[in-house]
Design a protein around this nucleic acid. Structure first.
Ligand code: FES
Ligand code: FES
Lengths: 141, 141
DNA sequence: ATAATAGTCTACTGTTATTGTCAAGTATTG
DNA sequence: CAATACTTGACAATAACAGTAGACTATTAT
């Protein structure tokens, strides 16, 4: 239960690659796709969303590619995921399109899902790309 | 993102109704469905799973229906959800069928999803049906 | 200029999971 | 035995997800 779509997963991994390459200049989509074993076309869509929410910037032409638009420690995983998939919405009666459930007022489980959602978002907001970078150096040691 | 299926939502609400009726004898599926505005046939499948995991018991024939099999405070929401949908598995490389991702060893995001999943399960395990019952009386006050 | 590189955009398709519906059957009670 | 109520498995509609394809624009280097 509560699976995260590949969109979110690939997106975070892509951002992680970009964070790693942070100061070495832009990384081409081709390179990112190769490192992750994901198709270029699919990745395009994700990077496009991330660009539109200003998390990365792009440079066309030879020598171009993508670079993160802020420092790694300023980009939280929560920010990445909500750019790609919108906010956490365990039940339909939460989230943007507030439809789906009847008797919303006085619904106990609604409060449950709401507080769960908040817990999740809080957690995701506390983890940033720099944390992941540090974590990796720890793993490789 | 991270939507919970209706299966899980209906299931928890059904269990909640059963907990409310706890000492008044069995509740028919018809009644539960009516209270929630959900189809009987669909609910059947859910109650069946819950019965097979011993969270509820059933009684056939006139005057029969479903009753919870433990005290409300012994049934956590986590238990209900995992009966219906299996364990939390944010990414495929977690969960039962450990397929999907390459390079699992040394994958940083995997650790991230893992710890998120654990956070969620911990939370769900701390909430039981009695908590929800108390919460409702608070709401109706 | 122009060729090569690299990102942009939109539409489309196949697959899978979700969300149900239906019908025939079994057990229990009065 | 008749009415009630749960049991089971097969099936269908829908929506979301995951991925593909192609035509286009901008930039760089020669
Ligand atoms: S109103 Fe949405 S879960 Fe109750
Ligand atoms: S191995 Fe599954 S997320 Fe990296």
């Amino acid at each position: 239960m509560l699976r995260l779509s590949t969109k979110g997963q690939y997106g975070v991994r892509a951002m992680f690659e970009l964070a790693k390459n942070y100061e070495k200049g832009p990384l081409t989509i081709k390179e990112i796709a190769a490192r992750q074993g994901v198709s270029i076309s699919y990745l395009e869509q994700l990077l496009n969303k991330l660009r539109k929410s200003k998390l990365i910037k792009s440079q066309k032409g030879p020598g171009g590619g993508y670079v993160i638009n802020k420092k790694p420690e300023e980009i939280s995983v929560g920010l990445i995921l909500s750019s790609l998939e919108g906010p956490v919405a365990i039940a339909q009666c939460l989230g943007p399109s507030a439809k789906g459930c009847k008797r919303v007022e006085g619904c106990v489980t609604r409060l449950l899902w709401k507080s769960l959602g908040e817990k999740i978002e809080d957690f995701l907001d506390t983890i940033n790309l720099n944390d992941l970078l540090k974590e990796e150096t720890k793993l490789l040691r």
